[in-house]
Amino acid sequence: MATAQRVRSSVAAQSQLNFRQRLVKDFVRNRYIYLMLVPVVAYYVVFHYGPMYGALMAFQDFNVTKGIWGSPWIGFENFTTFFNSVYFTRLIRNTLAINIIELFFAFPAPIILALLLNEITSPAFKRTVQTITYLPHFVSLVVVIGMMVDFLARDGLVNNLIGAVGVAPIPFLQRADWYWWLFVGSGIWQGIGWGSIVYLAAITNIDPTLYEAATVDGANRWHQLRHITIPSIMPTIIIFLILRIGSMMSVGYEKTILMYNSMTYETADVINSYVYRKGVLNADYGFSAAVGLFNSVINFGLLLIANRLSKRVSEMGLF
């Protein structure tokens, strides 16, 4: 009774204050929270929303000294120049090819690893596999590509080994036809263990009584895998699939820039590495910003489409 009355009277007192007064009161009471929030919001405004504003230069004949305020607007000219350039089809083809190969091989690899690890009954063996396969995630890209350059060189380890069985040396990293497979393969080497963590965690969260009931009904390991484990981790798989589709138009430019060379440009050059060369090396800012913006918009569109499709088909989605 007494508390109810107190609540009612405090509500009455609150409504007597006008909006401004309540705002001030809230700021005073939560001042430390707002103090903590300010630098974080400022960071996102400057370093994330700043570049989104800066992307307006894609519609300009951008000049650094004049800035966004002073440079002349040219509409979609930068975009049409890109669409009509000789690079356009090559860049799109390479970007899509690498992403499709990744979708088929690199995306399922950690899921399969997690499912196999789940079958292992010895905890010590399982932990050893995990520890070793997580390792490459922590090795820097520079070192990974550096090791590839060394091992795949004409006189490197791999050519020595295949030479022992009579195969003529292959200069792998100078060969355009090997590039996509080496790019995706090294990505799997580096990411399979780390990628399996989320799926393993999803498997651990499955209700063990499901398996007990299935065993009583005579289900073997294979039946359990097919009818319990895989359906149970499907939401996790779908969420990561949506995220993956949302980046179908981008290929890691850091890795591309480290890994490609003039002999492999034909298959290696992707949208982001082109943006880097045009923008940073050639200082063609407006044009390269347009290429980058085109890329961001397509990726965001793909993410929305994948999300909507997934919601329709499986009633699961990111948002």
């Binding site: 996102y44 400057v46 370093f47 994330h48 929303y49 700043g50 570049p51 989104m52 504003y53 800066g54 992307a55 230069m57 650094v64 949302g246 430019y253 982001n272 943006v275 880097y276 923008g279 940073v280 800012y285 390269s288 910003a289 980058g292 913006l293 890329n295 961001s296 990726n299 965001f300 993410l303």
Partner: peptide
């Protein structure tokens, strides 16, 4: 904040900023 995970202004505007 979450929106910035899915959409960004691109490499060149960040570089110039």
């Amino acid at each position: 904040i979450v929106f910035t995970m899915f959409f960004h202004g691109g490499m060149i505007p960040s570089y110039l900023l």
